[in-house]
């Protein structure tokens, strides 16, 4: 079973994403902040995909991507940004940091699953 880590400071989004992804057969872990996500990865959590929000209190999504890319164990883990942000410069910043894709909230469950399966071969 493919493992997905969701990072968002909104409990609603965490629950919503968990509901959608777990119903589709994925194992889901949740981190309520960027710091928690990075800590989990440092403690050996090895997701097949990370979905992170951009604007979070404390460590933001770009910082999370940078931390993931800096860790040799997670360097090649795909990371999707799931955010309300729509500005092109922010997308470019995320892309430069190593994001795999960009999704603007609210995202339709079928669209989300389509992207998730696209970036996780075999899912």
């Amino acid at each position: 079973m493919k493992h997905i880590l969701i990072v968002d400071d909104s409990p609603t989004i965490l629950m919503s994403m968990e509901g959608v992804l777990s119903r589709a057969g994925f194992q889901v872990s949740k981190a309520p902040s960027g710091e928690d996500a990075v800590r989990a990865l440092q403690n050996g959590v090895r997701p097949n995909l990370v979905i992170t929000d951009l604007n979070m209190r404390g460590m933001n999504g770009i910082d999370v991507i940078k931390a993931i890319r800096a860790n040799s164990a997670t360097r090649f883990t795909p990371v999707l940004m799931l955010t309300t942000e729509s500005a092109q410069d922010k997308r470019q910043e995320a892309r430069s940091a190593g994001a795999t894709g960009w999704l603007v909230k609210p995202v339709q469950p079928n669209d989300l699953l389509g992207v998730v399966r696209q970036v996780m071969p075999g899912a």
């Binding site: 909104s10 509901g19 119903r23 589709a24 909230k105 609210p106 995202v107 989300l112």
Partner: peptide, 17 residues
């Protein structure tokens, strides 16, 4: 599918917030 859409629709709360 409707259940999944229902769960997905809850994202509006974060956007509205």
């Amino acid at each position: 599918e409707p259940l999944m859409n229902l769960v997905g629709s809850i994202q509006f709360q974060d956007v509205a917030r």
